[in-house]
């Protein structure tokens, strides 16, 4: 790229730039879709129309809501258990060597296998679906948080012991701020992973949710609806990033130079 263009770009604010980039993407899509002229690749405007219809009919909000509820429940369970196990393994060498192999096994079990097993063993129920997601997510959290716990600064922990910090004070002021980047990493990768898994879980064994709907559209070859649902997805993810994760990051990183 030439220098004046770069200088021009760096002069524009970040939010304007990302809006421009999305517009550019839409533009390319529109042009390609018009060129191809096939029902299998609808234009963004057609997708937007379908999206709007699905919202008005209440179908999209219902299925999205069901999926989001499953996501929140399984995410919370997986994060809490994963953090607890991760901190435990990171703090204790014997426990770590005892369970390291388990962790590697669970980390590498294909998501589909654990889903099928959960449905076979526990029936096509809501709890089996959530369990399948949680089993897939926990090893990820454990690995990340364990790494963070191993990297805890011994000097600071000694300082806290020396000044008789209570357990709560040590956790809040010494351990948590150090684990924070790791937990944020586990949160981001976890949300992405759960999104992907939860749809398959719904597709296989639930009669509502985004995965169920997508399967329906697949059978009807309704690409516009598939893209409209994907759009809703991306919207939700962006909201989480902008409204929850980014502000959290900003608050917890303000001390950095």
């Amino acid at each position: 790229m030439n220098k004046p263009l770069l200088r021009f770009l760096s002069g524009i604010s970040e939010s304007v730039l990302s809006a421009l980039s999305i517009l550019l993407f839409m533009g390319i899509w529109q042009v390609v879709a018009i060129e191809v002229n096939d029902a299998m690749l609808p234009t963004p405007i057609m997708v937007a129309q379908v999206f709007w219809q699905a919202i008005l009919s209440g179908e999209l909000p219902y299925h999205l809501g069901v999926t989001l509820l499953r996501l929140v429940v399984s995410f919370i369970i997986a994060m809490l258990l994963g953090c607890a196990i991760g901190i435990l393994l990171g703090r204790s060498k014997p426990l770590d060597s005892l369970f390291d192999q388990w962790l590697i096994i669970f980390l590498n079990i294909p998501a589909l296998v654990s889903m099928i097993l959960c449905y076979v063993w526990f029936g096509l129920t809501e709890s089996a679906a959530i369990l399948a997601v949680v089993i897939n997510k926990i090893p990820n959290v454990v690995v990340t948080v364990r790494e963070g716990t191993r990297a805890l600064d011994q000097d600071l922990l000694e300082m806290a012991r020396c000044h008789h910090f209570s357990k709560r004070k040590t956790l809040k002021y010494v351990i948590w701020p150090q684990l924070h980047p790791y937990i944020m990493a586990a949160t981001r990768s976890g949300l992405a992973l759960i999104w992907k898994i939860i749809l398959v879980v719904e597709l296989l064994g639930r009669s509502n949710g985004m995965g169920y709907q997508l399967n329906l559209f697949f059978q009807l070859f309704d690409v516009a609806s598939i893209l409209a649902y994907t759009l809703a997805f991306i919207g939700v993810i962006q909201c989480m990033e902008l409204l929850v994760l980014k502000p959290l990051d900003k608050k917890n990183q303000r001390w950095r130079r």
Partner: peptide
């Protein structure tokens, strides 16, 4: 009560 000044300052960087 023991006050300990460590060899490196050991301040909590987020406080």
């Amino acid at each position: 009560k023991i006050g300990y000044v460590f060899q490196n300052p050991r301040l909590l960087p987020w406080c």
